[in-house]
Design a protein around this nucleic acid. Structure first.
Lengths: 228, 228
DNA sequence: AATCACAATATTGTATACAATTTAGATCAT
DNA sequence: ATGATCTAAATTGTATACAATATTGTGATT
């Protein structure tokens, strides 16, 4: 099975592709990411794959076990709580900053995210919807013009995606779209207090909607998940 | 000039060694980190060096310019402000958490850090003193038992070290030891409010003690800085 | 002397080869 | 059958070779 795909990019490209697959839950926590396998899928040498895996490991999206290989991370319950505690330190204040410097264009951009999210839900692409719902939060950090904090939030949202894959119960009713709509309303009014408060309770809602007892399971096929 | 040193470790070891050199200001912002050069210093192949450099780049301690190589990062003024804004979101609340779960042993550990810092100052090892002063903050995050947040703070403190190298004026009077002593006092009393407030003002003091107009300069010799 | 063009050199980017380690499978004894 | 032990296969860790790109140095031209 020869892969004739044009060599489309370096380590960054591969890392982003895998990260997207994780976001969309095509790659499941615990799944093994073999180097040769990835190397075939993306048509680059193991050197590139390794660089990509190292980068993903640094963001804690995968776990690198020495001499054993790379596995999609399986955040523990404690880690899940930590991630949401970190988010609750960073995101509410960032939402406030964003609200204060929000422009018309920014609001349109956020509204587009929500619309795309709804479209995805309607089409039954729940993985994509989840991904877009994360992008909404990242977009807020970008608008706040805090690159450092935005980078942290980006990582935390990626990890949240893993946490949701493991501990979310009612995937049908996902997506807090109400909370996001309420946030946009606060942004429209450039109401920093309101934005901060809404984000705070939104994060609490998210955490409490997890079932931290049970735990979804089990790796499956890799090629299938990455072929898109 | 043959290096007969025992191969003492993999990418992690190299990354930590370079990070320490940056912390202690033996490596100066802007300095070029050539792969062959590092490869000789640490007696490993460029493969390992590259992995280490990629890791450091991810923490923004070095900048990786494509086809040009690795350079010790030179945070801009805007980035310096961002870093301290991120710290001010994370560290005060973390200091509060730490205060609330502080044990006798933790306090001794922090006291030891301060003592070591003073010793370093007395011996004129200002680089090492600065490093230890950073460790004090990291230790607090560890005591708060928040690994995720601790990792962020660790990165921010590393970057602060670069910022200090670039923008600090009065290096003689460094080290806020008063602020650290005051924090320990709050910890002794398990006074969360006080700890949070002290940390907050400590960070403001740090930022305002920088001179964000002028900027120290210029790379120097590499082998010298790393030989230790 | 200054500037440009071009060759020579050095450095980084990627792939591959080989070594070390783990995993899987087969064989054998109980 | 079950389990242990050893062998073969597969996978990861590291070093090196080669290709691509930048940097430096030289000389010609003005």
């Amino acid at each position: 099975m020869k892969n004739t795909q044009v060599k489309s990019g370096s380590a960054e490209y591969v890392a982003e592709a895998i990260e997207l697959a994780i976001h969309e839950h095509r790659l499941i926590p615990g799944m093994k990411l073999g180097e040769d396998e990835l190397s075939e899928v993306y048509g680059v040498s193991r050197t590139i794959i390794r660089a990509a895996l190292q980068s993903l490991s640094h963001d804690r999206l995968i776990e690198l076990k020495r001499n054993r290989g790379a596995f999609v991370a399986q955040p523990s319950v404690a880690e899940a709580i930590e991630v949401f505690e970190a988010r609750s330190l960073l995101e509410p204040r960032t939402a406030r900053s964003a609200a204060e410097r929000m422009t018309e264009q920014d609001i349109r951009s956020l509204q587009n995210h929500i619309d795309a999210e709804h479209t995805a839900i309607d089409n039954g692409e729940s993985g994509r919807a989840l991904y877009l719902s994360g992008l909404f939060h990242i977009e807020i950090a970008r608008i706040a013009d805090q690159k450092t904090i935005a980078a942290f939030i980006t990582q935390l949202i990626s990890r949240s995606s893993l946490i949701i894959a493991l501990y979310w119960e009612r995937r049908a009713a996902l997506c807090e779209s109400h909370a996001h709509h309420a946030l946009i309303e606060a942004f429209r009014n450039q109401d920093g207090d309101q934005a901060e408060a809404l984000m705070k309770s939104h994060l609490i809602d998210l955490l409490t909607s997890l079932d931290l007892r049970s735990r979804k399971s089990a790796p499956s096929s890799l090629h299938e998940a990455l072929k898109s």
